[in-house]
Design a protein around this nucleic acid. Structure first.
Length: 265
DNA sequence: ACTCAGGCTACGA
DNA sequence: TCGTAGCCTGAG
């Protein structure tokens, strides 16, 4: 089936390639092919129109929420633009939306992402789905936490994820055991949510913040990777404005995208 | 043979 | 509490 979504100031390419998700790849014709939950999707953007082709029926609200088609960042961007340096970044990067990906999938993906590059992360996740995810006829769903929780680290050898294998299984056990409920984590004060996630072996500050931002709707989480640390020193030596902190995660995406395209000299 | 990749753990001072 | 060596793997 095909569905059209009308968006405003939305960039499908920037949203899908800014490093928040690993299961969508650009095709030769400029469309994006990838997996959302139990569905294989093809997406094409033409101006404000996004055409989504799926293998089966999906409620429009589910797709819109996942990709952020209906999110309106204009009020938030207005606040961020009170800082002139940030205003310049907003001007270039405002098409990016923070997606709403499944909590467990996000946690597992960013455990894999540590000290790793994006093509290899995507490869490991593909093998993870092929080896342990359910066959949906033509593609594989992301495996459940319960499925991985029952495995020994050696069973993950085909993934070639190295020392991250036991981390992944530890995370799976915690989620499968009900010790990391998405709704509970989502509503915790930021520092408590981070601390709780960091009790998982293999989850440090960066992975915790990525999980909160991309997989739990916490726009105040601010993942600090090597690029952001350099970019903050270069562009915001005294930190973000206080009124930007509730949306620090959105600002993080703008800063990252801007730093990547302009360099840091 | 190296380095580096959107880090983390374990260990030492 | 703070700083950092070492780590699986694979591309350049």
């Amino acid at each position: 089936m095909q569905t059209r979504f009308i968006t405003s100031d939305y960039s499908l390419k920037d949203t899908l390639t800014c490093g928040q998700c690993f299961r969508f790849t650009e095709q030769d014709d400029g469309s994006f092919l990838g997996v959302m939950g139990d569905h294989l999707l093809s997406l094409t953007q033409n101006g404000d129109c996004i055409l989504v082709c799926s293998d089966s029926d999906i409620p429009e609200t589910e797709t819109a929420r996942f990709f952020g088609f209906s999110e309106d960042y204009s009020a938030i961007n207005g606040i961020l633009c009170r800082d002139p340096v940030m205003a310049e970044m907003v001007r270039e990067c405002s098409g990016i939306r923070i997606m709403a990906q499944p909590f467990w999938e996000t946690l597992a993906s960013f455990v894999i992402s540590q000290n790793n590059n994006i093509p290899r992360i995507a490869g490991i996740i593909n093998r993870l789905c092929e080896c342990f995810g359910e066959d949906r006829g033509g593609f594989y769903a992301f495996p459940s936490a319960e499925k991985l929780a029952a495995l020994e680290p050696d069973a993950l050898a085909p993934l070639r994820c190295g020392y991250r294998a036991p981390y992944l299984i530890d995370a799976a056990k915690r989620v499968a055991g009900g010790h990391l409920e998405e709704d509970y984590v989502r509503n915790l004060p930021l520092e408590e949510a981070r601390k709780l996630l960091m009790t998982v072996n293999g989850v440090g500050p960066k992975v915790a913040d990525c999980t909160l931002l991309f997989g739990a709707g916490r726009l105040d989480a601010f993942p600090k990777d090597v690029w952001i640390k350099k970019a903050m020193a270069r562009y915001f030596p005294s930190g973000l404005r206080e009124d930007a902190l509730p949306y620090a995660g959105i600002a993080q995406q703008y800063i990252f995208h801007y730093a990547r395209s302009h360099g840091l000299e």
